[in-house]
Amino acid sequence: MENGVWVFIESDSGTIADVSLELLWKGRELADQLRCELGCFIIGHQVSDAASDLIAYGADMVCVADHAQLVHYLTLPYTRIAVELIKEYRPSIVLIGATSTGRDLAPRIASHMRTGLTADCTDLQIGEYKFGKRIWKELLWQIRPAFGGNVIATIVTPETKPQMATVREGVFRQPDADPAREGTVVDLKPTLTEQDLIFKIVERVKAEKKVNLKSARIIVAGGMGVGSKDNFELVRELAGVLGGEVGATRAAVDAGFVDHERQIGQTGVTVRPNLYVACGISGAIQHRAGMQESSRIIAINTDSDAPIFSVAHYGITGDLNEVIPRMIKAYKEKD
């Protein structure tokens, strides 16, 4: 199992996170390309049943660390178990979802292993890297928009293993399950030390996920051009009339117009709806990375040079305060 591709499977009360399955889909592709195995590890309580599902979704090997005290994520024991596994199986690549858990765990592991880690990748590929006279073959290309407008950086970790990356939800597809697939399950039977449990969760309040942007067929999203929290009502109204969900850019979320869970883009969720209506969104690359694969895109912006128009199929140069009410009226008047 050395030099394999590994995925950390995040679970909460027995349910596997979507992003982990999406990473299995990508991990399978990378492993096939590298002619190696796809492993994964799941830490939690009563997670043994998940192992057969994970094999059906593409894993060749599943390591299960089941313990009553591990029912929710805790930094220290999860890190220790992950590090021990990595030292034993020496994977070449480790992929982790960029959730609040993954963003706590991944840097901790990378720091311990003294290896590189790239956050919020929007694509992963296998390719070579030349530096002077040296050539590395089959490295993980960790691709992400970099600070500074329309720039995409490809990052590599040539000299240390594992090569590590985090990826947000929605960037990759969900795999199809194949119940006939076969694989190995390793039961780790972890023992926890007093030091592992120095922190304990005393209370946990978690609302059911209210919005599911990924499965929405229509999304109406607003950016800073919407202007205010109150004015965001227009975006909501159009979404309501069209039977769609409301999305937003990071700037609009940071400005408090809408909740974080509606953020679309590199540091939010990636969506591919049938229709994406971009209202007052200029179209920074970080946002486009999360929506440009939508089947149809309508851009409404006062600035005809806004980059959003170059990914849009339909463009309206104008004030959304006039355009949106007219869209609602036209839709309601349809025969």
Binding site: T115, G318, A330
Partner: peptide, 27 residues
């Protein structure tokens, strides 16, 4: 341990969306 292999400027293709005016008829 992370090295930048390359940085690419994303050239937005000279793609023109089908445009509609803001009048009631256009919408």
């Amino acid at each position: 341990e992370t090295w930048i292999k390359n940085v690419e400027n994303v050239k937005l293709t000279a793609h023109e969306p089908k445009s509609f005016d803001t009048s009631e008829t256009g919408i």
